[in-house]
Design a protein around this nucleic acid. Sequence first.
DNA 1: ATGGTTGGTAGCCAA
Length: 262
Amino acid sequence: MRIATWNINGVKARLEGALAWLKETSPDVACFQEIKCTDEAFPDEAFEELGYNVAVHGQKGFNGVAILSKRPLDEVAVRGLPGDEADTHSRYIEAVVPCAGGVIRVGCLYLPNGNPIGTDKFAYKLSWMRRLHDRVEGLLALEEPLLLVGDFNVIPEALDARNPQAWTEDALFQPETRAAFRALVNLGLTDAVRACHPEAGIYTFWDYQAGAWQKDHGIRIDHVLLSPQGADRLEGAGIDKFTRSWEKPSDHVPVWVELTGA
DNA sequence: ATGGTTGGTAGCCAA
């Protein structure tokens, strides 16, 4: 079964592209970030017509995440990342989907950008990453196939940027950011795309500005992290780079994994 | 080289 994730940068602006991508690649589960709309404004029907069940955690204007599934959404475990009652950002939704006689659990996340560094935005990013760490620690005890997918806003290593030196002052590539990401992975998660593609030049984001796409000035910041039970079933992973050439593209491209089992 | 572009919103903010 295929599970995919895509920061679509506005579902209203990207609906046509999102539907075309779903028709072309037919993922069993599709996770979206930056839908930039409320639950009420999300176009459920357009996705339901393609056979998807829909769970949304939206927000007016900014952020917003959604999970689409051709299988039943057995349980929408949480809307919003636990650990801070005062956090009003819609950046996390988690659901359980039946698979191969059992279930898979999917956490769909839009991790804070954190720029500029040295501000409360960067502090928020790091505190959000600590809360995510706590959540994942708890989920790993369930010993389920868990997929943590989405826009992490983290460049894990220099290999994950075409021009790493251009990102040294950016929140996405700060030592603290990278250390928090490593701590998460070191809980026992597998970076699926890197596991399948050790080579350089694998990117998921190209800025709209300064001809970044034309110059291949990309970074790898959208990830699929698998629990050990998920990694056991990893058959392949990849990037749907072709969507970046479309008219009115998102600045991110989809990332997918293929797992064994129906 | 400190530019440049897009989306959501309705003034600029976030990325």
